[in-house]
Every structure is written in C-alpha cells, then in structure tokens.
Design a protein around this nucleic acid. Structure first.
Length: 259
DNA sequence: ATGGTGGGTCACCCA
C-alpha cells in the first residue's frame, strides 16, 4: 500500500493537481488537510472519475477540513473533537487492508509563542496534549497517524534551528510535546527513521519567499507515523518537493510511504 | 525589526 499526506490549501482550487499527483505517484490512500470546503462542495466527482472513488471527508466553510481518499473501500469512518472545539481537524477511517488511518490538521498556533498573550498558541498546546493523552490510553496497533502537525520537532527538520528557536512550530515546548506524543502515544516516526538522523528534511516552504527553492528555508511540518507493529513494514519514503514547484502550488509538499 | 504571499469570502479571517 502506498499512502500519502498533503496539506492542499484548498482542494477545490487544486483538484486537478490532486488527481495528477494521485496518478503520477500511484497513490492508494491520500490524506488531505486544509481542504477549506463544506462536504457538499467537496470535488468528489473528479476523484471518482480519476479512479479514487472512496472518500471520508469532514470539512467546513473557509477553514480547516480533512479528507481521506482511497482506491479501495474505506470503513468505520469517524472523527473526534479536540481542545473543546468542533472544527474539522481530525478524521479517521479503516483501509481495505485493515489499517486504521488518523488524519490530523493541528492548529498552526499564531505568531506569539506564549499561551497567555496568544490564545492560538494555547489551543495548539492543548490539542497536542489531548492527542498525547488519548493515544497513551489507546495504544495504536495496525494504525497510521498522518497530517500537518505544524511542528518541526528536530534540528534537522528546519533550515536553522537557531533562527527558529522562538518561532512557532519549532519552540522547545512544541518540539518536546511532539516527541512526547510519538514516544508516549506508541508511534514510530517512520519518515525520519527511513532517512536517518542527519538528513535535513522539509515538507513546507513559505509562500513569502522570492524563490522558495533558492532560499530553501523549509520546515518538516507534515508527518507520517505508524504504530510500532507496522514500522518494520515501511519499504520506501518519498517527499515530493517537486509539487511545491507546480503552477499555483500548495505551500506544502506531499509525503509518501510504501507499506 | 520588518514585510514578504496566498486562499476563502466578501472586510477581513486564516496560514
């Protein structure tokens, strides 16, 4: 099975890019974040026509929104609410080969890394803490967690760990929190394990650069983790940074694993 | 320290 995660930043604007990617990368299961559309307007027909007929979707107007798109039937689709809100930041479903997939869009957290000054940062920390509590008490098996987690946990996950020390997404409290979620939650960071500790990895490059590729100031915000029983079954990992260079691109690149 | 760009919806919200 080939599974991908991609923050698409409007699935309606980029549906042709999505179907082209599904075909060219030969993806079986695609998890999207920031679909930014209510379910009634989700571009299901284009996906069905392309050969990906099975969808678990959870969207709202303008903001957030997650989806799981598959070639083979999905079952047991559901979601949970996090940090006391009903925003569309989580959806789960079981794939035809019996793997439970959790797809998350963790809050970005605003600009100021202080929960007293900036409620968005508190929301983000609360969200991560709830995920940690949930998976610590419900240890995953035959499961995969993906998404835009909006945290780059390691020094090799950002272009400058020094310059991003106080930038939301790479502060110590976020980095520690995400690593605790991996460790206590029973997950394996199979992308990092595949490439090794020293490889610099990015999945996101800001729109606010004259030339994103030349400056290459990226961060690894998008993650794929497996439950520990599945980790040894990962045979390949690819970050499709070429998609960041597409016409009218998302600011995120797809991350793909073969299992 | 600052401003840089992009998406959604309709004066700003969000990233």
């Amino acid at each position: 099975m080939r599974l991908a995660t991609w923050n698409i930043n409007s699935v309606r604007l980029r549906i042709d890019l999505v179907t082209a990617f599904l075909k060219s990368a030969d993806v079986d299961v695609l998890c999207l974040q920031e679909t930014k559309t209510e379910d009634a307007h989700f571009p299901a027909d284009a996906l069905i026509e392309a050969g990906w007929a099975h969808h678990a979707i959870r969207g709202e107007k303008s903001y957030n929104g997650v989806a799981i798109i598959a070639r083979e039937p999905l079952s047991d689709s559901g979601h949970m609410d996090w940090a006391g809100r009903e925003d569309c930041r989580h959806i789960s479903a079981t794939t035809a080969n019996g793997i439970k997939v959790h797809n998350f869009y963790v809050p970005a957290g605003g600009d100021v890394p202080d929960r007293d000054e900036n409620p968005k940062f508190g929301h983000k920390l609360d969200f991560i803490a709830e995920m940690t509590a949930y998976f610590s008490q419900n240890k995953p098996q035959r499961s995969i967690l993906v998404g835009d987690l909006n945290i780059a946990p390691l020094a090799e996950d950002v272009w400058s760990t020094k310059q991003l020390k106080n930038v939301v997404s790479h502060t110590d409290i976020e980095r520690d929190g995400l690593l605790r979620l991996i460790n206590d939650g029973g997950w394996s960071d199979v992308v990092r394990q595949h490439f090794g500790d020293d490889e610099v990895l990015y999945s996101w490059w800001s729109y606010r650069a004259r030339d994103w590729a030349a400056s290459n100031r990226g961060r690894r915000l998008d993650h794929i983790w497996t439950s520990r029983d599945l980790a040894a079954g990962v045979t390949d990992v690819t970050i499709h940074s070429d998609m960041r260079g597409a016409e009218k691109p998302s600011d995120h690149a797809p991350v793909v694993i073969d299992l």
